[in-house]
Write a protein that binds this DNA or RNA. Structure first.
Lengths: 233, 233
DNA sequence: GTTCATAATGAACGGCGTTCACAAAACGCT
DNA sequence: AGCGTTTTGTGAACGCCGTTCATTATGAAC
């Protein structure tokens, strides 16, 4: 009975053991082509931007007919989504080393610096992830409980403020996740404005990132509240 | 002699005074059509986003042939640029009232609130201005000395910090324009992330805007510098 | 009524994403 | 070795798109 089960199970996949290697090879070749398509696509995006990525040019570059691409991806957006995920992993990779810095405030400076640096060095990748169609980035965050790249990188920021709180260095009622959101918005804004408003000649983004962190941590330099000052939050 | 001058001036435009009204009418009609095109285009962008704005659909909506649009605009980008300028004026209009608030810190809160509110209420307009092709927004800032909508609205932010400085409420060596840049980046980041990363469920943007301003002004709530604290620069 | 500039257009070009019927190749099996 | 089936690949088409240009209508000027 056990053997019968086994036999059936094997037949479900492949009848004879000797043929196992061949289907593995096909699967591997399939994966390799898929990989090649993605790499060429990534190159195109990096070089000319997402808007210049066309299925026809992409097919041409990998030397297949356009229709063949649809055997590996549902449509252009599916390719874009995959590039989005990988781009985000790159960002995370550039970002996370700074997460190991002990001192929380210093860590903040390093994280902000790394983030901005990535955005400026990989502008088209950054645009793809954060400035194109919302549909492309949704799966970075959606329904990903904890292991998704999105929540994970956000968690790095949150942890900074949690550490500060645990060390009793910020108020008990401070909300780490909200502070992290604000910081993220800040660095994103620095990068995004630089990438889009090229006409506006502002200060170097790295400098702005430092100023962002230092003001967020210490407040305006030498600030004295006036008489009619609003409550601090 | 005065009469001769006048006569020549009139001849420069049209030979006889009776014909004056007709060329004026033609010019007016031309301007009206141009205006109609822009308004329909703005509607389309507001409703379906810039990506859904096509010359053919636009021509259809104004009941002209597509080619006719090119008698009034160089190309699609020219229309987009004009919409960009007008969108920015709308932003400025929603933004500037808060500029008249006396107390600088309160003014900051109001400005940030108005900015974020505009971005959320006019998402497609905001995207067009700040999140599409850089080419569309360049002329908002480029070579505009002082009167351009871009520099003017930025100036509103700068003035807040200048006022604080003039009142002796922030350090002498504080740099208003850089602080303004950081604040702008912050509010832009809040709006932009909300518009793009729809998958990420964050806190209400208005709340983030308040938190951004309050941390930038007062620093982290209850912050105590550690032993290895970085210079405040 | 003829002349002439201007306004408007239809048709075309090249490019795009995507689909689908069909061909070619690879493979499983006897 | 050869047959049937499944996988892999493709050419051609559809319906969009922005843009151009030769051609036609319009209507003022004389």
């Amino acid at each position: 009975m056990n053997t019968v089960h086994l036999l059936l199970a094997v037949q479900d996949v492949k009848p004879y053991s000797g043929d196992m290697g061949i289907s593995e090879r096909k699967e591997r070749q399939r994966a390799e082509l898929r990989e090649q398509i993605l790499q060429v696509a990534k190159d195109m995006v990096t070089r000319e931007g997402f808007g210049a990525l066309s299925m026809r040019k992409l097919a041409d570059a990998v030397e297949y007919a356009p229709a063949t691409l649809y055997l590996h991806f549902e449509n252009r957006d599916a390719i874009a989504r995959e590039l989005c995920v990988r781009g985000f992993q790159d960002l995370l990779a550039a970002f996370e080393p700074a997460a190991s810095v002990e001192e929380p405030v210093e860590r903040l400076f390093r994280l902000a610096e790394a983030y901005v640096k990535f955005g400026l060095e990989q502008p088209e990748t950054y645009r793809l992830i954060f400035m194109e169609d919302p549909k492309l980035s949704t799966e970075l965050f959606k329904d990903a409980p904890e292991d998704g790249a999105g929540p994970r990188s956000f968690g790095v920021l949150v942890k900074v403020f949690e550490d500060l709180k645990a060390a009793g260095r910020i108020a008990e009622d401070a909300e780490p996740s909200k502070l992290a959101e604000v910081l993220w918005a800040g660095v994103h804004g620095i990068v995004a404005l630089r990438l889009t408003c090229t006409g506006f000649k502002g200060s170097p983004p790295e400098e702005l990132a430092r100023l962002l962190v230092s003001t967020m941590v210490n407040g305006l330099p030498g600030f004295k509240p006036g008489k009619a000052a609003r409550k601090t939050r």
